[in-house]
Amino acid sequence: MALASLRRLPLAAALCLGLATAGCQRADLSQQTKKTEARICTELTTVNQALEQVAALTPTSTVGEAKAAQQKLEQSIATLQTSENQLQKLRVEAFRKVLEGFRGEVAAASANKTQTLEQAANELKPKALAVIAARRALSAAVQCEEPAPAAPSKP
């Protein structure tokens, strides 16, 4: 019995280390996401200013003024697009990290041969809810339609 416990010790240590690392990476991704969202807000202001510059053009405006306004608008939209793409990558990466962590939890639960299915399910259920919440957040960020909840299967 003691030998079996010693064999599980490295697995448990690796799992704890993996979860700690994933937690740090999630915090880092969260910070990057917040910075990117703040940058997008700033860039939206720049786009708005460029639009106002275009709207301020009059029949007496020069071709040079019109061209400068158009260039400013195109540049601000391109910068905004780049930041939006980066934000999407960060959101997908955050979801992937949560999913990888859950896969590790499932592997650890399935490796524990002394645990019943009920115990494993009770252990994994809250962790699965975190994955579901992360998927919903990603879906909301890209404005996906939420699928209808699956009907519970009968035993």
Rank of each mutant, 00 (worst) to 15 (best):
Q86N: 09
L57C: 01
S110A: 12
Q119I: 08
K89S: 11
A94S: 15
A38W: 04
R8A: 04
S30M: 04
P59G: 12
A94L: 14
G18T: 03
K67S: 14
Q25R: 13
A56N: 07
E43P: 00
K127R: 14
S5H: 10
T79A: 13
A130F: 06
E93G: 00
D28H: 11
K34Q: 14
S30V: 00
A12N: 05
A55E: 11
T116V: 07
N85G: 07
S61M: 08
S61D: 01
Q88P: 01
L51C: 13
C24Q: 11
A27P: 02
Q75V: 03
A4V: 05
M1F: 10
T45L: 12
C144T: 11
L44D: 15
A56L: 06
V131G: 05
L3Y: 11
A55D: 09
V63T: 12
A111C: 13
T60W: 07
A109C: 10
A38Y: 01
E37K: 06
L57T: 03
S61F: 04
C24T: 11
Q81D: 13
E43Y: 06
L15H: 09
R135G: 15
L80C: 08
A20W: 08
V47Q: 02
R96C: 13
V47W: 00
S5P: 02
G104A: 09
L9G: 01
E100N: 13
E74D: 13
L90C: 02
L29F: 12
Q143L: 14
E74N: 12
L29E: 00
K72G: 01
L6E: 10
G23V: 00
T60C: 06
A109L: 06
R7N: 07
R96M: 15
R91T: 06
L6D: 07
G18W: 01
A12M: 08
L17F: 09
Q143R: 15
A22P: 03
T62F: 00
V106M: 08
E100P: 06
T114D: 14
V63P: 06
I40D: 02
A68R: 03
S110R: 08
Q49V: 09
T79W: 01
G64N: 11
P155T: 11
V63S: 10
V92G: 05
A134D: 04
R96D: 15
A66Q: 06
L117H: 12
E118C: 12
L9Y: 02
A94G: 10
A20H: 09
Q49P: 00
T42E: 15
L57E: 03
I40M: 05
S83E: 09
S61V: 07
F102K: 02
Q31V: 13
T58V: 10
